[in-house]
Amino acid sequence: MAIVDRLGEKLDGGRGGSVILTSVDALLDYCRGKSLWAMPMGTACCAMELIAASFSKFDFDRHGTIPFFDPRHTDVMIVAGTITHKMAPVIKRLYEQMADPKWVIAMGNCAVSGGIFYYDTYSVVRGVDEILPVDVHIAGCPPRPESLQDGVLRLREIIATESIAPGHKRKGAFTLPRDAAEGDGE
């Protein structure tokens, strides 16, 4: 658990008073991970589940993930659906318009590998991997909205290991020392 996750407890009774020491990486990763605005790149059937995930029954907003249709304001592109050779340049251009740091979730079998449209078809790109770097793959035809939410939580775990130093990956999220973490509650 990152230090920042227990910010409230630390501020209330910690030895440092209202001062807390952490690293820039941990703070940035915390903020990025908990407010992922999603660019819903829904092309086919999976887009329906993407919409369903944002609505009342599944309520995507509680994870801080809000679908927003402007690539320049979004952090993660959720590619939901089949990508054809006609659509691929559009997706690539929209991805290029997104500001760094940016991530891609491939939702559904079509975006993962072409899925049911792998064989015998002349117009389908076999997976969004062929045009974009994908961080999380979600299988299913289409995946349930819960799977999508799980995928976003997985992406958050990936984001927690990122560093602002180029080319550097952290082993995992910074954690409190074990005794300190457990001692706080007593």
């Binding site: 054809t84 006609k86 559009v90 015998d120 078809t121």
Partner: peptide, 15 residues
Amino acid sequence: IGHLHRGIEKMAENR
């Protein structure tokens, strides 16, 4: 249109 043309009619010929 045609951004989602997946060739289902062609695929059906080999199934």
